[in-house]
Computed example of a mutant assay.
Amino acid sequence: MFNVSTVDTIVWDFDGVLNRNIVDGKFTWNDGFEAEFGQSIETFNEMIFNDKFGEVLTGEMTLIETVSDWAGTVGYQGDLMNLIEYWFQNDYNLDERVMGWLAASKRSNMRNVMGTNNEAMRTQFIAEDLGFADRMDRIFASGLMGVAKPDEAFFNMVSDELAVEPDEMLLIDDNQDNIEAADACSWQVHWFDGEDYDGLEAKLQEVGALG
């Protein structure tokens, strides 16, 4: 069993932990898409979030390329950057309670970083427009790293880059595959299911992140 007192760095997942952008099984930004752009959101999701989206998440293919492929297929001739901006602007619903704990952890002098599966454009939006560049000590994003969770290389790259022993890292994530992969890399882990706030608060208190 890990000694929780040795936690040096908390790695926060974005979507599903800090950001609650899925409600009743669908992305919040999907509402209003068809009225705004006159296109089927079902078709958009099917063409964007398919097996090839993994290449977008790791930077092998850009988001604008895959959205352009969709536009060419359905005959959409609008401004693609405007569409992507609509997506980003309507795809965040920050969890106030978890954000409060992040702020408390930062005040406690715990190192806090983000570990997220996001491509470069949305990562920039998260960092700059949503202000996470100031809220986090570092942001580790799959689109900039060339590897995505749950690949163990993601976790090894983060701990190596920070020069922190793996068992001094704590991952907070909503995806059980990511949790299992981090655990296999000797990280400490906490699975947040989006409902057990008491459990997450207790874990943060246990590692000294809440003062």
Rank of each mutant, 00 (worst) to 15 (best):
M110W: 03
M99S: 08
G59C: 07
T62A: 03
D151V: 04
D173C: 11
A141N: 08
L83M: 15
A71H: 00
G100D: 14
Q89R: 12
T123N: 11
E85G: 01
W101M: 14
D79Y: 07
I139L: 14
R135P: 00
A163H: 05
G75P: 11
E42T: 11
S159D: 02
K52C: 03
K149H: 12
W87P: 05
L57I: 08
Y76L: 00
T116E: 01
M169N: 08
M114A: 05
T66Y: 10
I41Q: 02
I126L: 13
N90K: 08
F154M: 09
A104I: 04
N82C: 03
L94C: 06
V98M: 07
L170G: 10
W87R: 04
E36N: 13
S68D: 15
D69I: 11
D173K: 06
S40N: 13
I64R: 09
F132M: 15
L57G: 01
V164D: 06
N117D: 13
R97A: 07
Y86R: 02
K106V: 12
E128D: 15
V158G: 02
W87G: 00
E34D: 12
P166I: 01
E161R: 09
M114D: 01
D177V: 10
I84T: 04
G54K: 10
D160K: 12
N109S: 10
K149Y: 03
A133P: 04
V158K: 02
